[in-house]
Amino acid sequence: MASARDTIYETLRSRLTSGHYPDDASLIPQVLSEEFEVSRTPVREALGLLERDGLLVSTQRGFTLRRRSDEEMLEIFEARAILESSAAYAAARRRSPIDLARLDDLIERTRAEREPAAIRRCFNLWHEAVRQAAHNQTIGELLHTLDAQAKLSAPWKTPLAEGTFDASIAEHEQMTEAIRAQDAERARTLMLEHQAHDRDTRILQLVSQMAATAPGASGSAEPDHVEKET
Rank of each mutant, 00 (worst) to 15 (best):
N124K: 12
S218T: 13
F36D: 07
L74V: 14
I28R: 13
E71T: 15
D70K: 01
R94K: 15
A4V: 02
L106D: 00
H172F: 14
I28T: 07
R68C: 08
D24E: 13
V38S: 15
D147S: 08
L103V: 03
P155S: 05
A214S: 13
L47A: 10
A117S: 06
G140L: 05
V207K: 03
I98E: 15
R186L: 15
L142M: 09
S26K: 14
S85R: 07
L74E: 13
E72T: 07
L27Y: 11
S86M: 11
P215V: 05
T11E: 11
C122N: 10
W126N: 03
A81N: 13
A161V: 14
G48M: 03
A167R: 13
E173Y: 10
R131L: 10
R52Q: 13
R114I: 02
L65C: 08
A184M: 00
D224S: 10
S26F: 08
L83R: 14
T59N: 06
G62M: 06
A134N: 01
L16N: 05
V38H: 10
P29V: 11
Q30R: 12
T138W: 11
M1G: 08
I179F: 01
A211C: 02
L190M: 07
T17I: 15
E78I: 11
R202Q: 05
Y89I: 00
L56N: 04
E71C: 06
R188E: 09
D105N: 11
E115L: 04
L106Q: 01
I76G: 04
E75W: 05
Q209P: 01
S153M: 08
E222S: 11
R95M: 08
L47R: 11
D104M: 07
D24I: 05
G216L: 02
R131M: 07
Q195R: 12
F63H: 15
A118S: 14
R199Q: 11
S168Y: 15
A112Q: 08
L152P: 00
R44K: 14
L12K: 00
L152S: 10
A161C: 05
L12I: 11
E71P: 08
G19L: 08
E10A: 12
V31C: 03
T230H: 09
V31G: 00
L190H: 03
M73V: 15
S26E: 14
N124L: 07
L83G: 11
Q30P: 02
A79C: 10
E35Q: 15
D6F: 10
G216M: 01
V38C: 15
Q182A: 14
A187C: 02
A221K: 06
D198P: 01
V31L: 08
A161I: 15
H172W: 10
Q60D: 08
H194T: 02
D53F: 03
L16I: 14
E193C: 03
E113H: 01
G216N: 07
M175D: 00
R61L: 04
W156M: 12
D104L: 12
H127A: 06
T110P: 01
G62H: 05
S26N: 13
I76K: 01
Q182R: 14
E227A: 10
E34K: 12
H135S: 09
R52I: 03
A211G: 02
R52F: 05
T189A: 15
E51K: 13
R52P: 02
A88R: 00
I203R: 03
S153L: 04
E128W: 09
R120V: 14
R66W: 04
A88F: 09
R202H: 06
L146H: 11
A217L: 02
E71S: 10
S168I: 11
H144D: 13
